[in-house]
């Protein structure tokens, strides 16, 4: 197996008494799409900043593209494409100038940067907007521009901090498509997200993080196999009755979970579970059978939903 692009052992970040990242271990392979899935405040962004050498770790070992971030920030960032959670674009400049200026920070010659910027605008589907000022772009366009900006130095790995948070479904799909292309070209993708569908779409492998620690690791499908059933039956009885109904359901499927608004029945055959519920004389207001997702994995591991 080739050497990992990024490797962490006991990686820790403390702010005073608060431990944001609590001794995590992970290794990301070249060309892999690796995700950090967890709720807000789990320590995902802090981990990303430590990888980019823009946040100094408190303890533990970290190696990024062969360098120690503690004293090789420039060498590491020269090889990385960074897409921060807030776009941090220069809103007063035109779209194309944002790319040119960013390329100059890498010391790339102006003619090269100009050529590359045009290619990246094409990739980000922003060619028509090249002369527009950034403050007039939609959220999805800004996000694509930020990704294009992160690619200006032909990075070996891209760090994407919540790439699609706040975007509408259509904009998210356009973005996923672009990221998928990068992955096909062999760029290592490291992303954080609290969207399980995003993690399932993009990640070869991911770690589930909660309160600064890693609670599970694997591919999306293996995590679902390991921590959930094949299908899930969701039944709603009205918020006042869910608790009582769940006790009557107990025993159907392999596990029953009560949420404030619904009851989840974990079973390999959802339709059979639904029939069993009806046989017990229960009449849910609504019911639906779906496939298990990472959301179920997260719920199982932490007892909480991903987005609260």
């Amino acid at each position: 197996m080739p050497a990992p692009v990024i490797e962490a052992t006991g990686l820790t970040k403390r702010y005073g008494d608060f431990t944001a990242v609590d001794g995590i271990d992970f290794a990301i392979q070249p060309g892999e799409a690796f995700g950090f899935l967890g709720p807000n405040g789990a320590g995902k962004s802090t981990t990303m900043r430590m990888i980019a050498a823009t946040s100094t770790r408190t303890s533990g070992d970290l190696s990024v593209l062969g360098f120690d971030p503690a004293d090789h920030g420039p060498e590491i960032r020269a090889q990385l494409g960074i897409v921060p959670q807030a776009d941090q674009l220069d809103e007063e400049l035109r779209v194309i100038d944002n790319l040119i200026i960013y390329g100059r920070y890498f010391g790339l010659p102006v003619p090269y940067v100009k050529r590359r910027a045009e290619e990246l605008l094409e990739f980000a589907q922003l060619t028509e907007k090249r002369r527009s000022r950034v403050d007039g772009l939609s959220g999805g366009m800004k996000r694509r521009l930020t990704i294009a900006r992160g690619l200006i130095n032909s990075p070996k790995a891209m760090l994407l901090d919540e790439p699609t948070t706040g975007l509408d479904p259509q904009a998210r799909h356009v973005l996923w498509d672009r990221l998928f292309r990068l992955k096909e070209e062999g760029t290592t993708l490291v992303l954080t997200t609290h969207y399980m569908d995003e993690a399932e779409q993009l990640c070869d492998r991911l770690v589930v993080v909660d309160k600064g620690t890693i609670v599970a690791e694997g591919s999306p499908s293996s995590l679902i196999r390991q921590y959930s059933t094949r299908e899930v039956l969701e039944v709603r009885f009205g918020s006042a009755h869910n608790e009582a109904a769940s006790q009557a359901i107990e025993g159907i499927g392999s596990r029953v979970e009560v949420l404030p608004d619904r009851v989840l029945v974990y079973a390999d055959d959802g339709e059979a579970a639904m029939s069993a519920v009806h046989e017990r004389g229960l009449r849910p207001i609504t019911s639906l059978v779906r496939r298990s997702s990472l959301e179920d994995v997260f719920l199982r591991l932490t007892g909480r939903s991903l987005i609260e």
Binding site: A78, Q79, L108, S154
Partner: peptide
């Protein structure tokens, strides 16, 4: 430090 699409990352770092 390898070359990616003609971009020399080691040179980028030292220039920066």
């Amino acid at each position: 430090v390898a070359d990616v699409g003609g971009v020399d990352h080691a040179l980028i770092a030292s220039r920066a």
